[in-house]
Design a protein around this nucleic acid. Structure first.
Lengths: 230, 230
DNA sequence: GATAAACTGTGTATAAATAACACAATCTGT
DNA sequence: ACAGATTGTGTTATTTATACACAGTTTATC
C-alpha cells in the first residue's frame, strides 16, 4: 500500500469571487447566486463546484466559471484555501477560493440568469452563506493590492475605454476618489495605452477619447525592469 | 445522501517552507529534510504531513512545524495550494503550502537533527522533490512583499538585536545591499524600536546597541493609520 | 442664437520621500 | 601607538506625490 493511503481524504470545493465593473453605475460588482439546493437553500452564495479527480484545481476553477458565464480566457487567480472544521455545517469540505475579473458585457447574460445568478454591488452585498463573506473580503483586499501593482484593471473594462472610465474603475476598487489630473498624468506617463481616433459620446457632450491597453508595450517595459503602479 | 457525497475525495498534504536567519553568515536559510521513505527516498524536500479529519488546515501546519522544531507561537501564513495532476508521481495529492519564520536558535536543534533536517542557505538550495522548488520560490517572493510592508523581520531575529543585524536580514531577504544611513533613519523614524542599555560586542570592537521591537507601539500606530514600510 | 449644464482635459507650485554620498568614533589585538 | 574592523551620524540633490482652478466642447433649452 502506498505511503499516503493510510491518511484521510477530503471533499474539495472550488469557490469563485467573480468581479465585474458596471461602467454606468461606476460600481464594482460581484456575481452571486441563490442556492437551489440544501443546505442553506434560497440563501446567497458564491459560485462553486467540486474538484474532480482528473483535473487540476486551476482547471476546475475555469470550468466552473465557464459553466456560469460562458467565458474562457479570463483573469483568474487563486486566493486562499479555507479549511476550518466548521466552515460548512455538518460536512468537512475544504474550499479553494479563486477570484476572477470579467467584463460584464462580454459574459453570457442569459446563461447567468439561468443559473439564478445576479450582479450585486459590493457596497450592498447581502449576507452570504458559510464563510463566503470572508472570502469576498479577502478577495477585495487582494484585488486592491493587485490593481495597484499590476495592470489588471483592464480585465474589467471593454477593449476600448476612456480615461474617465478607467479612473472610475480605480475609484470603485479603492473606494475613494482620485484627482483626475494626477491620475491621467501618471497613467499616460507609463506608455501603456494607445489613443484611438474615436470618442465615447454617451456620458458627456464633449466626448472622451478611447484608449486601448497595449499588452505588448507592457511586456517590453517589464523586460526593462519597469514596475507598474497606480 | 448529502449533496456532496457523490464527489471525489482527495488526500491533502501540508508542506511548510520554514525560513530562518543565520546572523553570523548573514544568510537567509530554509529548513530542508532528506526523505527517509518512498517515493524519492534520499532526496531533499520540505517538511510536510497529511491533513487529518479533525483539524483545520492552519492547525495541521502548526502541528507539523511543532513536530520538527518543537516550536509553537510561530509566524505562519498560508502561501498557496498546489493541485496539478502530476505534481506527485503516481498519486493525486493536493498540497497546501505554508511559510513560517522562526528564530533558528530558539528551535530545538536536536529535534531538527533527529528528523534528518538541515538549515540550507537559499542561495545554495539543492534540487527538491516534486514542485517543492517552486514552493520555495513563491514563498520567497511573498516573504519579500511581506517584509516590506509588515514588521515581520523581527520574527527571524532574537528578541534583542542590533540595527546592523536587522539590516543584514533585510539585505538577505531582498538580496541586495542597502545604505546603512538611509536604512537606520527610516527604521528609527517609525518609533517601533526601543533602545536597550546594552551593546552587542561579538561582531565589532566598538559594539552595537541592542534594540527591541515594541509590538505595542506598532498596534498603536496601526490604529492611527500608520503604514509600515521598509 | 445665447446660455446653462455636464463632463473632458490641461499646468504649475509645494511638500514629501528617496537616493546618493564621506568621514569621525570606538574598541582591541598586535 | 596604531591598524583594522565595524558602528554611527548629516547634508544635498533628485524624484515622486499632492493639491489645486480654469478653459474647452457639445447639446438641450429658453
Amino acid at each position: 500500500m502506498p505511503y499516503y493511503q493510510e491518511h484521510e481524504k477530503f471533499h474539495v470545493a472550488v469557490d469563485s469571487i467573480i468581479f465585474g465593473y458596471d461602467e454606468d453605475g461606476r460600481e464594482l460588482k460581484v456575481l452571486l447566486l441563490k442556492r437551489n439546493f440544501q443546505p442553506a437553500k434560497g440563501e446567497w452564495s458564491l459560485m462553486g463546484g467540486f474538484l474532480k479527480n482528473n483535473e487540476a484545481i486551476d482547471t476546475a476553477a475555469k470550468r466552473i466559471l465557464h459553466q456560469l458565464t460562458g467565458l474562457s480566457d479570463v483573469y483568474m487567480e487563486q486566493l486562499y484555501t479555507f479549511g476550518e472544521l466548521d466552515r460548512e455545517p455538518g460536512a468537512r469540505i475544504l474550499s479553494v477560493a479563486y477570484f476572477a475579473l470579467i467584463k460584464i458585457n462580454a459574459s453570457d447574460l442569459e446563461l447567468v440568469k439561468t443559473h439564478g445568478a445576479t450582479w450585486v454591488p459590493i457596497s450592498s452585498m447581502p449576507r452570504l452563506i458559510f464563510d463566503h463573506t470572508a472570502m469576498v473580503g479577502r478577495a477585495l483586499k487582494k484585488l486592491q493590492v493587485r490593481a495597484r501593482t499590476q495592470p489588471i484593471g483592464f480585465e474589467l473594462l471593454p477593449d476600448k475605454f476612456t480615461i474617465p472610465q478607467l479612473q472610475g474603475l480605480y475609484e470603485a476598487i479603492y473606494n475613494k476618489t482620485l484627482d483626475k489630473r494626477n491620475f491621467r498624468r501618471k497613467l499616460l506617463s507609463m506608455n501603456l495605452l494607445e489613443k484611438l481616433e474615436e470618442k465615447e459620446k454617451e456620458s458627456s457632450r464633449k466626448g472622451a477619447w478611447y484608449y486601448r491597453f497595449e499588452p505588448k508595450n507592457y511586456e517590453d517595459l517589464l523586460n526593462r525592469g519597469f514596475n507598474f503602479e497606480l
